[in-house]
Design a protein around this nucleic acid. Sequence first.
DNA 1: AGGGCAGGTCTAATATAGAGACTTAGGTTC
DNA 2: GAACCTAAGTCTCTATATTAGACCTGCCCT
Lengths: 151, 151
Amino acid sequence: MLPGQLRGTGMNTAALSAIERFSRYQSDDAQSAAPVHCPVRDVLDRIGDKWSMLMIMTLAPRPQRFSELRRAIRDISKRMLTQTLRDLERDGLITRHVFPTKPPSVEYRLAPLGESLLEPMANLIDWADRRYPDIHAARACFDGASGEVPR
Amino acid sequence: MLPGQLRGTGMNTAALSAIERFSRYQSDDAQSAAPVHCPVRDVLDRIGDKWSMLMIMTLAPRPQRFSELRRAIRDISKRMLTQTLRDLERDGLITRHVFPTKPPSVEYRLAPLGESLLEPMANLIDWADRRYPDIHAARACFDGASGEVPR
DNA sequence: AGGGCAGGTCTAATATAGAGACTTAGGTTC
DNA sequence: GAACCTAAGTCTCTATATTAGACCTGCCCT
């Protein structure tokens, strides 16, 4: 059971229990010799990479083709675009449809599993959007203060 | 305004509007010559790196010291641990307290800003935990099917 | 005197990402 | 009718990020 720090924060039950579950995985892992396989780690490694969330958010409003995605996320390289799409497809988050036009076009769209990820992810995005000023302020403050005080 | 795909999905308002806002940023960016600075990208680059979310989740139940964190996240290198902690501190998500014991111990704990990230992040973790079997099934299916059909 | 610990930093080796040339086949421009 | 464009990639080479692990500083224990 978690210590009191988290209680009374008004957090919803799913969130609280997620933290607790994760916490348990971690202590199991710290104790055992071999690494315990934690599903959270597994999934975090997947969607927590550099482009996956961005890709899913970009596909949220409508399916898009390879080049459209490239234009939408302008600083992704073709190589990483291909690879990220492939990985997301592999995990069942998006689907890939080839249309035999000339030149062939390929459409990517969210699979139901990917759509189910939209809400939790959008809530994170919403946080990011609302807290952006705070982060920036903290960053400016930190950068201003560093150099003055040695560590 | 977003096309209909998203309507009637039972998604909450904050989530819907987050997707819409993000979508608008992206089209602005696609149109203008210089990249439009999107706060979502900015924050996603920060917490979407390899270790940050894991760190925040690990600090959720209680504050921890450097070595405790190392033991909890066993496959992080000291270098990345230091760097991740420093970056999170810079962004105001965690705080760092040095206790002048001998040898000095350093405690890291979530700042209020970091705590506010806990709920959206925990909801994502909860998703990860619940959908893990689906992802695994999709992965096995994909891996089984590939090699049989050329792309 | 030797060894350990805490919380790091530094360097060298390795893994991952990016830039950009090349592909295939048909359509467009000059 | 030759040169060039597009779509969706792949391939190679280079740049950047990450890891492993040696080393550092003070103080405590034996």
